[in-house]
Design a protein around this nucleic acid. Structure first.
Length: 291
DNA sequence: GCAAGCCTGACC
DNA sequence: GGTCAGGCTTGC
């Protein structure tokens, strides 16, 4: 699933393969993935040149400048769950669920947006609109400082797992890397962010950074759908230590990995390495002993 | 029936 | 304001 490492890998690939190139023509094959008017999407992007690729959390922003020097437009890409944004030869056959095409230069290559589940979205926006969207996101998980991270944890009572995945507080983690970071920090997914010790919070911060950096190095995780901008899968799958390993032995201690549903999302963890804290989310006060 | 990101809306 | 449930979508 595209989380920060996958989106970062796509961004790097786009820089290599598409930076400086002209978006000669835009074709929408399935308008449902476009935010706003499809006609405006086409007219505001056609004829512009890709001059920058940026990422915040899981949001990808392509900056497109006009030849006449008018204000730049931004193509905001959210890959959702199964979104792919690739550079492909025009001659290559379309895979099913290919929703948007952006012809590059002479049209022999094109950017393709493909998304089986259609949770992904493309939007053409002004700088102000882009900043409003990115401003609503928390600091990027790869760039956040430890002080910011600790401040964001303060006073939070829900499950730390949900906190890690809340894009308004910390941008970039989804289910895979949230589970992996909690395992690396030896922290139970139901622990409360505002109630863990300073040492534990410190461990979690470094676990998040380390897991993300390693995943970026390996080009992200491919379960089924994810491909980078050049159509290649990620290699982090083999490095997963808890995600989707329910019933298998913990690679650190051998205990059986368990699965727990938190806020509708499955969480995978080792019940020994990630011991349940005394106070967990959903249990604000320790229960009184039976009368 | 499950997976998932993200948005909306309900609840306290 | 914080927190969480529900719904979207489709292939396995």
């Amino acid at each position: 699933m595209p989380e920060l490492p996958e989106v970062e890998t796509v961004a790097q690939g786009l820089k290599r393969r598409a930076l400086g190139r002209l978006v000669a023509a835009v074709e929408i094959r399935h308008p449902a993935v476009i935010v706003g008017s499809p006609e405006k999407f086409v007219s505001t992007l056609e004829g512009r040149t890709l001059v920058n690729v940026a990422r915040q959390g899981k949001a990808l922003a392509l900056e497109l400048s006009a030849l006449d020097g008018s204000a730049p437009r931004f193509l905001l890409v959210r890959l959702g769950m199964t979104g792919q944004f690739t550079v492909a030869p025009h001659a290559a056959p379309y895979k099913s669920h290919t929703h948007v095409l952006l012809a590059l230069d002479d049209g022999r290559e094109e950017l393709r947006f493909r998304d089986v589940r259609r949770f992904g979205r493309l939007r053409s926006c002004t700088r102000e609109e882009l900043e409003a969207v990115l401003g609503a996101l928390g600091p990027d998980a790869q760039r956040i400082t430890e002080a910011q991270f600790l401040a964001a944890m303060r006073g939070r009572h829900g499950a730390i797992k949900s906190w890690l995945m809340n894009q308004n507080l910390l941008a970039g983690l989804g289910n895979i890397y949230a589970d992996e970071a909690l395992f690396a920090a030896r922290l139970h997914p139901l622990a409360q962010p505002g109630r863990v010790s300073a040492g534990t919070a410190h461990r979690l911060y470094h676990a998040v950074r380390k897991v993300l950096d390693r995943a970026v190095q390996l080009g992200g995780t491919t379960f089924s759908d994810y491909l980078d901008a050049e159509g290649r899968p990620g290699k982090f799958l083999k490095k997963l230590r808890v995600y989707q390993r329910t019933g298998e032995p913990c690679l650190r201690c051998g205990r059986t990995i368990r699965r727990l549903v938190i806020a509708g999302r499955s969480s995978h963890f080792c019940p020994r390495c990630q011991a349940r804290p005394r106070v967990t989310a959903g249990m604000r006060r320790p229960r009184k002993p039976e009368a």
